[in-house]
Design a protein around this nucleic acid. Structure first.
Length: 822
RNA sequence: GCCCGGGUGAUGGAAUGGUAGACAUAAUGGCCUCAAAAGCCAUGGUCCUUCGGGACGUGCGGGUUCGAGUCCCGCCCCGGGUACCA
């Protein structure tokens, strides 16, 4: 065996060549009798070189794809590049290399490495989202949404990143900072393009119940959408004759509203204060608050501040005049920018009321619990109503809530209402490297969509693409100057480009029909593959990409272009690979480059190790020593295969095997059972690989003893190679080929034979009072009485039973006997 | 604060309420070798031991059970998400 040397640098390119020339992983759009399975990993953002996270996500996805194929599925496993966007553009600005060129270089590097890793991709479907043949259809989708009112332009307060010199979507602002560059985000009043994702808020929440996603991702989406049910209630300022609707989730506490608060940004604040004598104070306060940065204002711990407006509004349920305030704890972005304050039952209102000496009234009887003041207030819980109105007092508050809303509705003073935290998706960007928005601005006709037959609106080549606060495209005069498609008058092109997340919100649809030049896709073809059966990617996209893609599919479904409503039936989020406990980064100098690992140990070792290191949804720390261990395992399996292939003839397994031969065959069947179970419905690659290791160790021991017969030995080894294939495709293919002359991917997934799974005997655990005292061999078919007798017969149990009374005997067939004594 | 994860040997991690620590790494001893590497064999939670075995052991404290890493109650610590959302 020692004369065979495991050399991945020879084995891996050889099999990659076979897959390349034979186009092994291509799949046609012509259905056959197999079930389909669409396995997809999130497409890479091509910048620089692939990193270890890429190796992980594609190793996981490839294992799934291979397992699906070998268990008889027709598998779609494509690849593409999310090529437009800020990182590429910023990189280009830094290096002076045009984003088109740096992106092309990065894509080439990814393509090369994906092949070196041996990922089983159908390359015929490949595209980059920056290619006109792709973004032509991104523009088409935009026009579809525009035509149906789901894309619109409006002037509003938007997030602006001063560093990247562009607006951002709410989803791209993290803790008041730009998600990409970390700069403090400013608020600017600008006219921008939006997608009406809020129209889909309810369905985006409700349909989470129809998909198999990790619960924490669903929760993040629910929280982001932030659906709250309650009521809109109108408070009227009699002096000025203006109605102020507020949103509340607690209309049951309306009788406890003792003041009214407006956000400092509320447009009516100044007008309300005017002529009350509070004017100056209010103006000063508002100015001070609005110049505070968002971060400081966002914290709930911060002491609330506010000033009186000098006006009152009428509480619609009891006609009380309650004072109006402006305060920084009320946000303009949520609800109506004004609230009714119920200090008795809301902690924030309570804090404010305490500070400014405002009335605090209990209207819900509470069970006394910890916290609160000497009266147990604020009390946020449930209970019967008090101090409200004879019609409602004594009524459980949840019931009263409905009754009060009904009453408001009848009186025309309010109605049931649902509020969302979700805002419409701001999609325009004042940047160069993105998909042009296909509209024209005409003085006479206004905004005019570019006719479909004129798509794509091609992104022009410009020399100076640095951000300037307005789109760099604006400088491309001969591109901007055009004629109105409607009236033929001189007109100007839209110069903003689309957010990169628009590009990636439909790419999984395009893979199904990527060669189609007549349409974005043929609905029949997409219907055949969709939805993605297994989607795999990082949890960092939980509310960005994953929410946007769901919105796109629902909108396109409603417009009649799709027959499904959820893009990703199952989602798996993989954990990060760290080094020395820290995220890999160039600054820390702890980067493990996949390319160098592949060069030194081979792709199979790298892939297998990443899957073996631990459960793939958890973070894991990279260890070079651990990598060596996996390398030794692959090497041992391969060398055994090479030796056995050479030394032993190909024999069938005789019917009457026993001893070591039988043990070997049994172990092989045990491994089939274990690996299959770990792969089907689970992502337990670590334990699956451990099972193949166990099998290989047993084969190795038997081989070194010189005991096994050729049939069982070959069977066990062939099985090991076959089971290993999804994780280490090159090594497994080579070992399998050495042993059988066959191609392992053309073989069905091995099936375990129950005959070999059942042993005639098992190790019976004998316990006294739950403590293990002995282990004896027992016949598998032994009955309870026989097992009890075996346990009692054990000399090791005798001292523990001596002089004691047997109280109870528990028998778990096939496992143990527990004798309870006193 | 709230919502999710997680806490098991020196290390990464295994364990449908039923033998805790599979598999791998590090370590130790041995074989092979002039030597080393590779490979192979053995040991491998802690403490005690008359070497038969015994006691303890899965973050902490209780509980349910014949039996708890696993289930329940109350905490502690770590990681992630989210946070004046009315």
């Amino acid at each position: 065996m020692s004369d065979h040397r495991y050399d991945p640098s020879e084995i891996e390119p050889r099999w990659q060549q076979v897959w390349e020339t034979e186009r092994t992983w291509e799949v046609s759009n012509d259905p056959d009798d197999r079930d389909k399975s669409y396995v997809l990993e999130m497409l890479p953002y091509p910048s620089g070189e692939p990193h270890i996270g890429h190796l992980k996500v594609y190793s996981v996805g490839d294992a799934v794809a291979h397992f699906q194929r070998r268990t008889g599925k027709r598998v779609l496993h494509p690849m593409g590049y999310d090529a437009f966007g800020l990182p590429a553009e910023n990189h280009a600005i830094r290096t002076g290399q045009h984003p088109r060129d740096s992106t092309a270089a990065a894509i080439a590097s990814f393509q090369k490495q994906f092949r070196e890793w041996g990922i089983s991709i159908d390359w015929t479907r490949e595209f980059g989202t920056h290619e006109p043949r792709y973004y032509r259809w991104t523009q088409w989708i935009f026009l579809q949404l525009l035509e149906h009112g789901l894309a619109y332009r409006k002037d509003s307060a938007v997030n602006w990143c001063p560093n990247d010199a562009t607006v951002l979507a709410n989803e791209q602002v993290v803790d008041g900072q730009c998600e990409r560059c970390g700069a403090e985000v400013e608020i600017r009043q600008l006219e921008q393009w939006f997608f009406r994702i809020t129209d889909y808020a309810d369905r985006l929440v409700d349909d989470l119940d129809t998909i198999e996603w990790p619960e924490h991702v669903k929760t993040m989406q629910r929280n982001w959408i932030g659906r709250s049910e309650g009521a809109e209630v109108v408070f009227r300022c009699e002096e000025l004759g203006i109605d102020y609707p507020v949103f509340t989730t607690r209309p049951d506490t309306l009788f406890g509203a003792t003041f009214f608060v407006m956000a400092p940004e509320h447009p009516d604040v100044e007008r309300l204060a005017k002529g009350t004598g509070h004017e100056e104070e209010v103006r000063e306060y508002v100015n001070r608050v609005l110049t505070h940065d968002k971060e400081e204002r966002g914290s709930a711990d911060r002491e609330k501040t506010g000033v009186a407006l000098g006006r009152t509004v009428t509480n619609p349920v009891n006609g009380e005049q309650i004072p109006m305030y402006v305060a920084d704890y009320v946000l303009m972005e949520y609800g109506t920018g004004a609230i009714m304050a119920v200090p008795g039952h809301d902690e924030r209102d309570y804090d404010f009321a305490t500070k400014y000496g405002l009335e605090i009234r209990r209207v819900v009887e509470g069970t006394p619990e910890e916290g609160g003041d000497e009266h147990g207030l604020p009390y946020p819980g449930d209970g019967p109503l008090v101090n409200s109105h004879p019609d409602f007092d004594g009524m459980p508050n949840r019931e009263a809530l409905r009754a009060i809303v009904d009453w408001l509705d009848r009186e025309g003073k309010g109605h049931a209402s649902v509020n969302y935290r979700l805002r419409d998706w701001l999609l325009s960007r004042q940047r160069y490297w993105g998909c042009p928005i296909p509209v024209v601005h005409c003085e006479a006709c206004g905004i005019v969509p570019v006719p479909e037959d004129q798509l794509p609106v091609v992104l022009p080549d410009v020399e100076d693409y640095a951000p300037k606060g307005k789109s760099p495209l604006a400088a491309a005069e001969d591109w901007v100057a055009t004629t109105c498609p409607r009236c033929d008058a001189p007109a100007r092109r839209e110069t903003d480009t689309m957010d990169t997340f628009v590009d990636s919100s439909w790419y999984f649809l395009r893979y199904c029909d990527s060669a189609n030049d007549e349409a974005a896709w043929d609905p029949a073809v997409v219907a055949q593959w969709a939805p993605v059966d297994q989607y795999i990617g990082g949890v960092e996209h939980a509310i960005l990409h994953l929410l946007y893609a769901r919105f796109f599919v629902k909108a396109l479904h409603d417009l009649g272009h799709l027959s499904h409503q959820e893009p990703f039936a199952k989602l798996f989020t993989q954990g990060m690979i760290t080094k020395d406990g820290a995220k890999m980064s160039k600054n820390k100098g702890n980067v493990v480059a996949p390319g160098s690992i592949v060069a030194s140990h081979g792709a199979d070792t790298a892939r297998c190790y990443i899957l073996f290191i631990g459960p793939p949804d958890q973070d894991a720390d990279w260890s070079d020593k651990g990598l060596e261990g996996v390398h030794r395992f692959l090497s041992r399996l391969w060398r055994l295969s090479a030796a056995v292939a050479q030394e032993t003839p190909d024999h069938p397994i005789p019917d009457d095997i026993d001893g070591d031969d039988l043990a070997l065959v049994r172990k092989a069947h045990w491994a089939i059972e274990k690996v299959t179970g770990d792969m089907a419905g689970r992502f337990a690659f670590n334990t699956a690989i451990a099972a193949v290791m166990e099998l290989t160790n047993e084969i190795s021991r038997a081989y070194n003893d010189g005991s096994p017969s050729p049939g069982p030995l070959r069977f066990a080894l062939t099985t090991a190679a076959s089971l290993l294939f999804p994780f280490a495709p090159h090594t497994a293919s080579d070992a399998y080929h050495l042993l059988t002359g066959e191609r392992v991917w053309e073989e069905p997934w091995p099936a375990s034979d129950p005959v070999y799974l059942d042993e005639e005997t098992f190790e019976l655990v004998c316990q006294v009072n739950g403590k293990v005292r002995d282990r004896v061999t027992a016949p598998s078919e032994a009955g309870e009485d026989e097992l009890k007798a075996l346990a009692h017969a054990s000399p090791k149990l005798a001292p523990h039973l001596d002089g004691k009374t047997v109280v109870k005997e528990i028998v778990v067939p096939g496992k143990l006997v527990n004798i309870v004594v006193r």
